[in-house]
Amino acid sequence: MATGGRRGAAAAPLLVAVAALLLGAAGHLYPGEVCPGMDIRNNLTRLHELENCSVIEGHLQILLMFKTRPEDFRDLSFPKLIMITDYLLLFRVYGLESLKDLFPNLTVIRGSRLFFNYALVIFEMVHLKELGLYNLMNITRGSVRIEKNNELCYLATIDWSRILDSVEDNYIVLNKDDNEECGDICPGTAKGKTNCPATVINGQFVERCWTHSHCQKVCPTICKSHGCTAEGLCCHSECLGNCSQPDDPTKCVACRNFYLDGRCVETCPPPYYHFQDWRCVNFSFCQDLHHKCKNSRRQGCHQYVIHNNKCIPECPSGYTMNSSNLLCTPCLGPCPKVCHLLEGEKTIDSVTSAQELRGCTVINGSLIINIRGGNNLAAELEANLGLIEEISGYLKIRRSYALVSLSFFRKLRLIRGETLEIGNYSFYALDNQNLRQLWDWSKHNLTITQGKLFFHYNPKLCLSEIHKMEEVSGTKGRQERNDIALKTNGDQASCENELLKFSYIRTSFDKI
């Protein structure tokens, strides 16, 4: 039985969820670079991206490699990797027998973001014989899940209580170790020597080791999670996991709180800001991140802002960003909400898709409305799209047979046209069989910064309504002859009103 693990408890099935942008060198404390989270699957090609990484700022997932063999891993080693800020997950990587050479110096898994409450997941690794993470000293947050690894031993010899604050939620089941077939031998045991430290858990006094050649490092209890030197002297209180010299914040392997210019500090002093819960960055760093993602459509890219001495992905609820200094300031009234469309555009074809934009005031991208039916549609669209004030790209209304009016965009005031449909149009209306009105132009103002209007096959939309939009939106004169079809717009509506004058002759039985 794995020490510190839980057996036999019912657990939810383990679901495996399925960018080499360097964020800056980590400095003297770390020998390499800070790398983003990685999802490495199918083959070993991307694994080489770990070569210079000291910190993975995010998670590391290595999974679904069915053609790899043990010899493929023999020359692979990433000794610079010290810390993973989120979680480490391995799933069905064939041929991998140990992690001792792959990650010989991995010391800390912070667990800032977890995989279903777990910071370390080893699942269905069919050839893994031992973990071998002999320098792993601290899992700051989260638990361990090690399950269905039929060859995995050296679990009962690990004292997880020396690595985690609590072992109650560890789930370590259905491994070879369960069948008591392992016969784990710690260093020196074969020669009758006791080389590794022994600890007591559940009444068992057991030597602690990761492999037959690597003991588990056990520091004096007084050192807590700070770690200790090879001689057993406690590291500085700002260290986490390990250090090369005692009581020196510049000799830590990793930091308990924050890293700044080669030393570990309790908090980031001005003019620095907390970033990702582990390091200090200056304003320029946060500003660069903001600008890199301002026009990016890459998933996970955030326009970072500053709030409460932190550089964070977005302002919290009730705050909006001051564009001059990136500071989050309290909103006066309802907060603006910028919604970034991942692929640059979004099609609204149902109430469900409209709900995804609920509360958005600025759309960074283009909207395509293609709704053919739905219950209580006008009210639903207004509830979900009615706060949109600005669209950076274009607005396209296409084959939306259920629409009679666009009044559900009740606050839309600006279409920038930074991206144009077919390279020309910022407003595009095609084949809307029941569209009769755009907006009530006596109450609604709309500016279209650039781009043209396109109207074709809107049989109940009168040309007068379209011409009014040209005047109000500032697009009059931009359109070419064929942009607004004269014969297919309003051709099934009563669009022309003329005053009919009647004269009559009164007659009676005795007068003409």
Rank of each mutant, 00 (worst) to 15 (best):
T329C: 04
S237M: 08
L81M: 03
E124S: 05
L88Q: 01
M65L: 07
N257A: 07
D169L: 12
C280A: 00
M321R: 09
D159I: 05
L50I: 07
L327G: 09
K129P: 00
K129H: 03
V253A: 10
C328F: 01
C35N: 00
F78P: 02
P316W: 04
C311Y: 02
K80I: 11
M65W: 03
G203K: 14
Y171S: 09
I146L: 13
A190V: 11
K176R: 09
M38V: 07
A190F: 08
N117V: 02
C153S: 02
S284T: 09
P316R: 11
Q245S: 07
L164I: 05
N150H: 06
H127L: 14
P187L: 12
Y134N: 03
M321Q: 14
S166G: 04
N325Q: 13
L44E: 10
V144W: 00
D159E: 07
Y118R: 04
E33H: 15
H48D: 15
N309A: 10
L233R: 13
D165K: 06
L260F: 12
E151T: 01
D86K: 14
P79T: 09
F115R: 03
E97W: 13
C235V: 00
P270K: 11
N43L: 07
M137P: 01
I84R: 00
Q276I: 07
T157V: 05
A190C: 07
L102K: 00
T68S: 06
N170G: 05
L44T: 08
C153F: 00
P187H: 08
Y87F: 12
D184R: 15
R297F: 06
G58Q: 00
L128R: 01
Y319V: 04
D75E: 07
H226M: 11
W160G: 01
C243L: 00
L260W: 07
C239N: 00
N309R: 11
I222L: 11
F115I: 03
I40R: 00
W210Y: 02
P269Y: 15
G203S: 10
L152P: 00
P316I: 12
A156Q: 10
N202G: 15
S213H: 12
A198T: 10
T85C: 11
Y273H: 14
P246L: 07
T68R: 08
A254T: 15
V144C: 10
M83D: 04
G227V: 02
